[in-house]
């Protein structure tokens, strides 16, 4: 509660490395059956109408922002809860894809180095077997 009652208001004081969640699926033999793929990639284009609609209804995007916070918390050492949250959302969103027995995710961080934007892997999760419900 204290950070809410005495806030620091340091929005965007520096642009930190930005996390992306990537995942891949495995078969029973723990062999990956997909390459790493970005979780919930952004659309190429969003109309003004769609942006306006998101003013009152934006659950998926707000969940994605929460998962960005979870990614940052994992890198800060708070791994258990945050990894469970990411795992839960991934499991929920890929459950329609049959033919896999486990999944794994990793966190890649985009950051600027000179004029170049670099991408580094910051965390790789263990394999999560399919079917274990998490909340």
């Amino acid at each position: 509660m204290l950070p809410a009652l005495v806030p620091s208001w340091r929005f965007f004081d520096m642009i930190a490395p930005s996390p992306r969640i990537e995942y891949r699926l495995f078969d029973t033999g723990e062999t990956p059956i997909t390459d790493w793929q970005e979780y919930r990639p952004r659309p190429r284009y969003l109309s003004i109408f769609a942006m306006a609609k998101r003013m009152v209804w934006n659950p998926n995007w707000n969940e994605m922002l929460y998962l960005v916070s979870c990614s940052e918390r994992i890198m800060a050492g708070e791994q258990d809860h945050s990894a469970r949250q990411i795992q839960y959302c991934l499991r929920r969103d890929v459950k329609h894809q049959g033919g896999y027995d486990a999944l794994q995710f990793r966190l890649v961080f985009l950051h600027r180095e000179g004029e170049e934007i670099r991408k580094d892997v910051g965390y790789i999760s263990p394999l999560y077997p399919r079917g274990n419900g998490v909340g």
Partner: peptide, 12 residues
């Protein structure tokens, strides 16, 4: 923020 942060809502 626009180039690589998690915030822009589309690639556009």
């Amino acid at each position: 923020v626009f180039a690589f942060s998690a915030y822009p809502v589309s690639e556009h």
